[in-house]
Write a protein that binds this DNA or RNA. Structure first.
Length: 582
DNA sequence: GCCGTTTTCGGCCCGACTGTTTTCAGTCG
């Protein structure tokens, strides 16, 4: 549903970047940026809006509405084409390097003739950057480091991008009369935070109509391979899609094989071999005495995943656990965790409104939350130390009055008034205890000093946990997938502090963060830490990101009982009382 | 380019940090 909006948002953002790169008016660029964000997060599909409807989107005026209309009818934006003609595409990628903004990118392009990240890397290695006016050795070093960071993303797609694409393909291919079943597999089904390519599996007697349908999808730009069992294409976003078609009776074995992970499959195959069996994407086979060359032996399971696991003496293992991190031993012992699910979540405890940097007003966020059937919902706008949000005591208290008034309007859903505090370098937060005591809930997060050393980071997070008014540590490592490394912190000390003080760690569901990550969750739960799976929504559409957070939680083996926002309101309120100071 | 109990021009989120400067520009959240 939101794909068109995202697409248009990306184009508007590109206009903004190109305006900055060409030295255009910064306010105009910001205006496009704002419109890009607003369009991306808007609840209604752009295709359903008329000109007036478009202008009702905050930040979209006559000019931008015209460009959107132009794009919907012609597939182009003349303004964008004109700007693109002035700047080689690689220059915009240079701007994506952390610490490199439009001014620096334009300078490098103009003075050195560098127009791709690779050329920039070469220039940096030849020490040609330091000669530029205003650029010294430190800056050159930061650029080198920034390129490494950008490249370490490895061209992998974020989970939401891959998921939306996969769901569209599964819907298209699955709707064909020739198709029996269709689903995505691979690391996407395991809900890994980033996805290298998308694996889609289908069953059909005749694969051709399915393969044809894939290659004809509008966002497919290149067909890399087209055969009867496998077709690979590349999409406009650069992501590779593999569609595999297998006979209906092999669905289960193929799903196991293509879901992986590799390590999980190896462990399964080893188990099969021990039992005199052989596991492949075509099924589980009993090896016959003379069947050592070519002959597969008797097929004993392949139709469903359950059947394949059962034939190996195992219960079905949820895809999010299939990483060879002890799931097979746990399955054998009957100790697989009863994983938390989206349906278990009774409320979101970290969300924003347009009082700070959210896109939607309080009323709209609450309406969207109520529609999800939540039993409670916390509004946690930014606190004043994040200066750009211009929060004041008065604004926060006025919002509280508004929250209390609106709370009465929702029968089944209690609205909690909270805030997202900023943990400063010393572990202090924005407001004094007396003011903090007025909130129902406080999330506290790191938004500054990302490069402070390990001792500083550890101390500030532990101190935040020790604050009796802090209930949840938001996005604890502050990583941004493919863009920013996690802070350097002794997480074991933080886990211990959380367990000791009754502070929950967030599993931030934003596809750009997914923080904490799975392995950290596994480590933290061994300390007895509680968790909160939150969306950090800045728009109504972001509330749907919950499933990515739940995916991360499952990958960390979490059960509902370990997640505070699966609890009843009564139990949650008890948790929020924390213990008194000292 | 957007927006208006400051409406049709003149503002536009603002402060901290970093590195390069020798008083400030660029980037970030």
């Amino acid at each position: 549903m939101a794909r068109l909006n995202d697409e248009v948002g990306a184009l508007l953002q590109e206009i903004a970047d190109l305006i900055l790169l060409t030295g255009g008016d910064a306010f105009r660029a910001r205006s496009y940026e704002k419109a890009a964000r607003a369009v991306g997060g808007y609840h209604a599909d752009l295709a359903t809006l008329d000109a007036k409807g478009l202008r009702d989107i905050p930040g979209v005026g006559t000019s931008t509405a015209g460009k959107i209309t132009e794009y919907l009818s012609t597939g182009r934006m003349a303004k964008l084409d004109e700007l693109r003609a002035q700047v080689p595409p690689g220059v915009r990628e240079i701007m994506a390097i952390p610490t490199v903004g439009p001014k620096t990118a334009a300078l490098i392009h103009r003075e050195l003739g560098v127009s791709t990240v690779d050329e920039l890397r070469a220039a940096a290695e030849q020490d040609r950057l330091g000669d530029l006016p205003g650029l010294g050795e430190k800056t050159a070093e930061n650029i080198r480091h920034g390129i490494d960071q950008l490249r370490s993303g490895g061209g992998r797609a974020l989970l939401d991008t891959a998921m939306e694409l996969a769901e569209e393909i599964v819907a298209s291919v699955g709707a064909l009369p020739e198709c029996h079943r269709c689903a995505y597999a691979g690391s996407l089904r395991r809900m890994r935070p980033t996805v290298g390519d998308v694996d889609v599996l289908a069953t059909a007697e005749d694969s051709r109509p399915l393969m044809d349908a894939l290659t004809r999808l509008p966002f497919v730009t290149e067909v890399l391979a087209a055969g009867p069992t496998k077709t690979s294409v590349r999409t406009s976003r650069g992501l590779q899609i593999d569609l595999r078609v297998v006979p209906p009776e092999d669905w289960g074995a193929a799903m196991v094989y293509f879901t992986g992970s590799k390590a999980h499959n190896i462990a399964l195959r080893a188990r099969a071999v021990k039992a005199g069996l052989k596991l492949s994407e075509y099924g589980l086979f009993r090896l016959t005495e003379r069947g050592d060359r070519g002959s597969e032996g008797e097929k004993i399971a392949s139709r469903t995943e359950e059947e394949v696991y059962a034939a190996l003496g195992l219960p079905w293992i949820p895809p999010t656990l299939r990483e060879d991190r002890g799931e097979i031993a746990a399955a054998l012992a009957g100790e697989l965790p009863d994983l938390v699910t989206v349906r278990d979540i009774r409320g979101d405890l970290h969300t924003h409104t347009d009082l700070t940097d959210g896109l939607a007003p309080l009323e709209e966020m609450l309406a969207a939350a109520a529609e999800r059937g939540y039993a409670y919902y916390a509004v946690t706008d930014h606190a004043p130390n994040l200066a750009m949000q211009r929060m004041t005591d008065e604004k926060m208290l006025a919002q509280r009055d508004q929250v209390r008034a609106l709370d009465r309007r929702y029968r089944g859903m209690r609205v909690l008034h909270g805030t997202e505090l900023n943990i400063d370098r010393d572990g202090e937060v924005d407001w004094p205890p007396a003011f903090l005591a007025g909130f129902d809930l406080c999330v506290a997060s790191v938004h500054s000093h990302f490069r402070a050393d390990r001792d500083v980071q550890t101390r500030r997070l532990v101190r935040a946990c020790e604050n009796p008014h802090v209930h949840v540590i938001g996005h604890p490592t502050t990583r941004m997938l493919g863009r920013r490394q996690p802070i350097d912190v002794d997480l074991d000390a933080v886990y211990a502090a959380c367990a000791r003080t009754g502070t929950a760690l967030e599993v931030n569901a934003s596809p750009e963060r997914l923080d904490l990550g799975d392995e950290q969750i596994m480590a933290a739960r061994r300390h007895g830490v509680r968790f909160a799976v939150n969306t950090d929504a800045h728009a109504t559409t972001h509330l749907d990101n919950l499933r990515y957070g739940v995916g991360a939680a499952q990958r960390g083996w979490l059960t509902a009982d370990e997640v505070v926002n699966t609890w009843s309101l009564t139990r949650l309120r008890q948790f929020l009382r924390k213990r008194p100071a000292g």
